[in-house]
């Protein structure tokens, strides 16, 4: 699968839902039946839910970053400016990303470093907007298939590796995938889904990967907790009828091209950016002696 435009056309031609077009395409490419792929993604959704549940009660510490999930969860119960849905999505994303950093079991979606974003967006949607939806589990699986297709296209046209494309390719891609899933869950057309992807990616272009001490903690965890909001707002923008001037496939190409021109020091090597700030250096020095 190489193009959101082609996928949209295929869905139109065959009068299929978007997720069905994804299953048909992947089935043809791999020889695995559509039903088997659906079941695989359905089991990934279960693993993702379990990781979110385990993450919300985990007390495993990270090496550098203090706990953030419980603070955001408590705050989200009280209100806050961004509204319950965004705050809850952020809390889940922080919890899951923290759980990953502390060697919890997660679903890399698309990567381990960005693993909080999809569960945050999907499970907050489920809690706030999925209550009366018939066959919710099936609907969420379909949304995860749509998200997976967006990831697949990004992998084929650009990259999903921070070492190759910076954080735009990891947390940025995850937010775009989540944005597509939300637009789909909200009943958006194929065009709305594509626009949600384009709008999200356009606002993360150039985001570098500069983790402190080479750990998947700072700034990774908080980026998970923040980018859910960009993806959600882009989905709402697309549902409002706002379109991206540059189509999604071309935005993805731009992301790939930008990724290749990011200097290696800002592509997961921890030799630039936040990783070489005085505070980061001090923290890393402290790590040498502090064993978990």
């Amino acid at each position: 699968m190489r193009s959101l435009l082609d996928l949209t056309k295929l869905a139109d031609e065959l009068d299929m839902y978007l997720h069905e077009a994804v299953l048909a395409t992947d089935s043809e490419a791999t020889g695995v039946s559509s039903d088997e792929i659906f079941d695989l993604i359905s089991s990934r959704l279960k693993d993702m839910r379990r990781s979110a549940e385990e993450a919300s009660s985990s007390n495993n510490p990270c090496r550098l970053v203090p706990k953030t999930g419980p603070l955001m969860r408590a705050y989200s119960e009280k209100g806050g400016m961004c509204g319950g849905f965004i705050l809850r999505a952020s809390a889940i994303a922080l919890e899951v990303a923290t759980y990953n950093a502390s060697m919890g079991r997660i679903v890399a979606a698309p990567t381990a470093g960005s693993c909080g974003i999809l569960p945050g967006m999907l499970f907050a949607w489920e809690e706030f907007y999925g209550k009366d939806v018939a066959d919710k589990e099936r609907k969420l699986t379909e949304a995860l298939i749509v998200a997976g297709a967006v990831g697949e296209i990004i992998a084929n046209r650009a990259t999903l590796a921070g070492a190759e494309g910076g954080c735009q390719a990891e947390c940025g891609a995850a937010a775009a995938m989540g944005s597509a899933a939300l637009a789909y869950l909200q009943g958006g057309s194929c065009e709305a889904v594509s626009n949600a992807v384009a709008l999200t990616l356009k606002s993360v272009l150039g985001l570098v990967c500069d983790p402190v001490g080479g750990l998947v903690e700072s700034p990774c965890i908080k980026r998970n907790g923040l980018l859910v909001s960009v993806g959600a707002l882009a989905a709402d923008m697309a549902m409002a009828g706002i379109t991206s001037l540059i189509p999604a496939d071309e935005v993805i190409d731009a992301m790939g091209q930008i990724g290749r021109s990011i200097p290696p020091s800002l592509r997961e090597t921890s030799r630039g950016g936040l990783a070489v700030t005085p505070t980061a250096k001090k923290l890393v020095k402290g790590l040498g002696t502090k064993k978990r």
Binding site: L40, I41, N100, S102, M103, G104, A108, A109, A147, V216
Partner: peptide, 21 residues
């Protein structure tokens, strides 16, 4: 890479290359 490799693998964190790999 098919969708199940994008949404996956299920793994112990924190890094797909340095831990799962």
């Amino acid at each position: 890479m098919p969708v199940w490799d994008i949404i996956g693998p299920v793994m112990i964190g924190p890094s797909s290359s340095h831990t799962a790999g």
